[in-house]
């Protein structure tokens, strides 16, 4: 095979007149695609407390405890059996453990876990990484 010295010289010279390939983050906002997997949000009104997300999570990052405040049971209608109140659930999400696979959101039968595109989640105080959604 024929050897050609300084094969890259012309390429290097043309790069003198090109814009940098890197972006100016954090001064310039970073773009993510529509399918990017970010932080998981929680909608307490939809959650039925089935714990499917807790069981499926590969990094044990979710807990679904009962809320401290519960709704009172609806008043008993005459001639009808008493209806129990709908239970309220909280969500404790450990962002430090989460691997952002979105398996919980896909498993949730009521779509109570909401997917977002948030990715700027770094914290100096580790306790702030545990989010308590009510």
């Amino acid at each position: 095979m024929k050897l050609k010295p300084a094969r890259m010289l012309s390429e290097v010279l043309t790069h003198l007149f090109k814009k940098p390939a890197t972006s100016g983050y954090p001064f310039e906002k970073a773009r993510v695609t529509a399918r990017f997997r970010g932080r998981i949000d929680f909608d307490s009104g939809k959650c039925i407390g089935c714990q499917m997300c807790v069981r499926v999570c590969p990094s044990k990052a979710i807990e679904i405890p009962l809320s401290e405040e519960q709704f009172a049971a609806p008043p008993v209608q005459q001639g009808q059996p008493a209806v129990p109140a709908k239970k309220q659930f909280d969500c404790i999400m450990k962002l430090g453990s989460c691997v952002y696979c979105w398996q919980c959101a896909e498993t949730c039968p009521k779509h109570a876990l909401i997917t977002t595109q948030d990715f700027e989640l770094a914290q100096i105080d580790p306790s702030k990484l545990v989010r308590h959604y009510k």
Binding site: M8, E11, A21, V32, T33, R35, F36, R37, V99, Y100, C101, W102
Partner: peptide, 27 residues
């Protein structure tokens, strides 16, 4: 050559993020 190949590799990583939602762990 190292700088050029790694810059061009961003194109394929963008493809992967576009299809799967992540650059490395595609899931």
């Amino acid at each position: 050559l190292f700088m050029y190949t790694w810059r061009d590799r961003e194109q394929v990583l963008d493809c992967l993020e576009l299809l799967s939602g992540n650059r490395v762990h595609y899931s």
